[in-house]
Structure formats: C-alpha cells, structure tokens
Amino acid sequence: MNIFRLTGDLTHLMSIIVLLLKIHTIKSCAGISLKTQELYALVFATRYLDIFTTYISLYNTVMKLIFLGTSFSIVWYMRRHKTVRLSYDKNNDTFRHYFLVLPCFLLALVLNNRFTVREVLWTFSLYLEAVAIIPQLVLLQRSKNVDNLTGNYVFFLGAYRGFYLINWIYRYFTENHYRRWITWMAGIVQTALYVDFFYYYFKSWKNNEKLKLPA
C-alpha cells in the first residue's frame, strides 16, 4: 500500500459518502443518474467475486464490503425509497446500459489476462468502471443547474482513479515486473472522461459560480 493508492481509496469512499449524505439527509437524488449507480453496483459485483475466497488484508475486505454495500443501497434508495425515488429525473436519465455493458463484456472476452470466468468478469468490471460515469455526465449536461453535492460527488469519483494512476506509476518504478497493462489502459480512459468535467468544475469554483456543463 502506498500513499497514492490510500488517497485514491479514501477519495473514492468520500464520493460515496457525499452521495449517501445527499440521498439520506435531504432525501433527494436530483441530478443523480440511476443508470450510473446500477453500473457501479455491477462493477463491484463482478470485481469482488473473490471477496470470500481470497484474503488480502482486513482493509481490503472491509473496503470491498463497504463499496458493495453502499452501491447496492444507493440503487435501492433510488428505486424503492418512497421519497427519494420521487426526485429521480427519469426523463433525462435515459442512457441505455447495454450500450456500455455489451461492448465491455465483448472486449473482456477478447482482451484479458486469462480466459477463465473470474478473470473475464474481473476484466469486464475494469472496462465497465471506465465508462460507467457516462450516463451521469450526460445527465449533468441535461440538468439545468448542478447542485454542489452532485458536483462534489462527480469530482471525487473522477479524482480517485487519478490517484490510482499515480499509484501505478509509483509501483512500476518501485516494484520490478509490476505491469498491469489492462488496468492501466482502463484507468487512463476512465480519468480522461472526467477531464472536461474537471475543467468546468474548477472554473466554477474559481469564479465562485454555479457549476454548468455546456450541453
């Protein structure tokens, strides 16, 4: 474990806490894409298949349980909770999951490290995580004004994988033979998707104005 990866994990956790705070305290999911939340639940479900068979560390297991638990409960809140579901912007959150799930699965079948069920699903989860934010970014562009909590949620979510990129560079130079081409490519694509969001996020923060993504 290095400081970059720890910061990445905590930033990721922070994004989930911000989202849960928004949904749980003000009982609203306005501006949040249910499609993206469902894709994240699928990412964790296919990424952590080995949670009960492979023990890395207490930290690793606890964080996996947190990510699994929070992602599924957020989907539950947005689908089932009597008040939260009313604030779900169904008409604008229309991005089709299978446009992302299918290509990622096909790519995982072709481009993987080992052709086993677990490895293909793990690779699928990497590719899917890279693009899972797209429905959320589309929704942000369609939403008139983006509230602070939603903006901060997306910011932390984008920043976490950026810290992972630094972690991979660090591990490449400190651990010989540390190579994760597939993980690195997916991580670069994932972070690149946030570049324009980061630009508008910092601009709104600098000019102290409402975050607005051009349509």
């Binding site: 994990d9 890395i56 690793n60 996996k64 490290n113 190579r179 993980t183």
Partner: peptide, 10 residues
Amino acid sequence: EDASSEKDEL
C-alpha cells in the same frame, strides 16, 4: 508479463 493473478488493489 501482466501477472494480474495477485489482485491486491480495490
């Protein structure tokens, strides 16, 4: 080679 067998990251 990408020995991604040990998956120690989240």
